[in-house]
């Protein structure tokens, strides 16, 4: 007890950044939800236990429509942690908070939105260097998420995913999904001993297995981003 009394410390507040997925629904919602279901069916559990932000910028909807969409998403186990780009009139106590900081909607929303838009840039320039090394294969159904670089000494299985804020190095075969530069780092790269990936992505740009050049399959490859396109080259 005495220890508690003498050791009075101020409450510590810490900032922490998390990786969130941003969903941008399109009208009509029914069609969009159908496409979402298709995606979910292809990668079960893709949205489970993952922070998800809903971007409603430019959508001409009212609050009941947004609430309807949220409940539709809720039925699919997609839990929305925040709303991005919403007009103040859309927000309310029964709607996930605006991403700026969980403040209840007020008329002074605009500056917060600007602050939000700056945030990703800050993160990319800050270049977090919390790199992760894994010495076991990444198995189907597992996802490995890191803010920094990821090195896998082993293979990434079909149905597994690696998401890194920085570059991804795989000393084995990539058969699953790899997402590098997930927070917008356009200089992130992907390296692997053997490319059989289902999907590769750098800073939001992606290519599925079908879009990858055939001659790259099964080869040691590095992938990087040049302007708006993912370029690849075999490593010798």
């Amino acid at each position: 007890m005495t220890e508690v009394l003498t050791d009075t410390q101020p409450i510590r507040l810490k900032g922490r950044s998390y990786l969130a997925l941003v969903l941008s629904p399109e009208l009509p919602f029914d069609d969009w939800l159908e496409r979402l279901d298709n995606l979910a069916a292809r990668s079960a559990g893709f949205f489970l236990r993952r922070p998800i932000v809903l971007n409603v910028e430019g959508l001409d909807i009212d609050r009941p429509q947004l609430r309807g969409l949220l409940s539709q998403l809720g039925k699919r186990d997609v839990r929305i942690m925040g709303i991005e780009g919403a007009h103040a009139s859309l927000l309310g106590s029964d709607i996930p908070p605006s991403l700026a900081g969980g403040l209840p909607a007020s008329d002074i929303e605009a500056p917060d939105e600007n602050a939000q838009n700056n945030k990703p840039d800050e993160e990319t320039t800050a270049a977090p260097n919390t790199s992760v090394m894994v010495t076991q294969p990444v198995r189907s159904g597992q996802s490995l998420i890191s803010e920094g670089d990821v090195t896998v000494v082993g293979s990434v299985a079909s149905g597994a995913e690696v998401i890194a804020g920085g570059s991804i190095h795989v000393y084995g075969t990539i058969r699953g999904r790899v997402v590098a530069g997930s927070m917008g780092n356009t200089s992130a790269r992907i390296f692997c001993r053997k490319l059989e990936a289902e999907l590769v992505s750098i800073a939001g740009y992606y290519k599925t297995a079908e879009d990858l050049e055939l001659e790259l399959r099964g080869r040691a490859v590095q992938l990087w981003l040049d302007d708006d396109s993912i370029l690849a080259e075999t490593l010798t």
């Binding site: 198995r139 189907s140 159904g141 597992q142 299985a157 079909s158 149905g159």
Partner: peptide
Amino acid sequence: EVSSVRDSDRIIGLLD
């Protein structure tokens, strides 16, 4: 076959 191999991979992950 591929489906069995992928499911086994998933199970190995769960075993770990």
